[in-house]
């Protein structure tokens, strides 16, 4: 039977948007998505899709992308399909509005994985660029009771095991585990592929599976949030930058060196 791979992906606010467009609604404690800037697939999750597709290219695999949220920009979330994933499952419910609670999110995603009959390998981005929480993938591994390897920069399946080059502060270690397993990946994995025209056409024809909370059979008590958000604000910056000027750029550079010398910094 073909290898079954799930990739967990999240729709996020574009982290590359100008800082000036970043706004918080103090009342709801929410970031207000600027209407002119469309959301994106979380960058590390695109690395995760890429990791899954490399395995598919090498050994053959059925790749399913799974996402949870209150609503989706379908054209954005079809990107994993246009890159080459086979299926897309969207867990869409107003009840999924609180995506900042790792416990809640992991319970919902784990139940979807179970409902889909389980996977040999689950690949996730190391963290999402909105809440930078880096908890959900590890939580899903715990809830499913599968082996967990974090911060991969290369992921390969060899027979019944996964072999991962895992980032450590000054290099990497090669770690292996028996399947089923969950692996998180980092940007060091390399650029995600661009969707091909054929991929985009195929993705247009594919219809995602859409499940609501009630389809998943998660008990209410399992969804009790573990974290309370009290406040969300934009930090004030008080620094004043002293601009160094010169006759030309090189002279400004020289003057900068003098300035740092005066300040006893060099």
């Amino acid at each position: 039977m073909a290898l079954k791979i799930a990739v967990l992906v999240k729709q996020v606010l574009d982290p590359e948007m100008p800082v000036a467009a970043f706004r918080i609604d103090a009342g709801t404690k929410r970031v207000v998505p600027p209407p002119s800037i469309p959301p994106v697939v979380n960058g590390f999750d695109e690395n995760a899709v890429e990791a899954a597709l490399r395995i598919k290219d090498a050994a053959g695999a059925a790749v399913t992308a799974i996402s949870m949220g209150p609503s989706f920009a379908l054209d954005v979330m079809k990107k994993p399909l246009s890159m080459g994933a086979d299926e897309l499952v969207l867990l869409q419910d107003q009840a999924f509005d609180n995506t900042s609670d790792a416990f809640f999110t992991a319970q919902v995603l784990a139940s979807a994985v179970r409902k889909l009959g389980g996977f040999d390998l689950i690949i996730c981005g190391r963290q999402a660029s909105d809440w930078d929480n880096a908890q959900v993938p590890l939580g899903v591994a715990e809830l499913l009771g599968v082996a967990c390897i974090s911060l991969g920069k290369k992921v390969e399946v060899q027979g019944a095991k996964v072999v991962v080059e895992r980032l450590i502060p000054d290099g990497y270690e090669v770690v292996e585990a028996s399947l089923p397993a969950l692996v998180t990946v980092s940007n060091e994995l390399g650029q995600p592929r661009y969707p091909t025209l054929r991929g985009i056409m195929a993705a247009t024809r594919k219809r995602p599976t859409i499940w609501k909370l009630s389809d998943l059979g998660v008990a209410k008590e399992q969804l009790q949030p573990r974290i309370t958000l009290h406040n969300l604000f934009v930090p004030q910056r008080s620094k004043v930058c002293e601009m160094i000027e010169g006759d030309d750029a090189a002279d400004a550079g020289r003057k900068l060196a003098m300035k740092l010398r005066e300040a006893k910094l060099i």
Partner: peptide
């Protein structure tokens, strides 16, 4: 420049050359 204490606006290559020499 909102985070820095000292700043130079300019072509980095030229600034860096003058800076490194000094």
């Amino acid at each position: 420049f909102k985070e820095a204490r000292y700043g130079v606006v300019g072509d980095w290559q030229k600034v860096l050359t003058g800076f490194t020499e000094a």
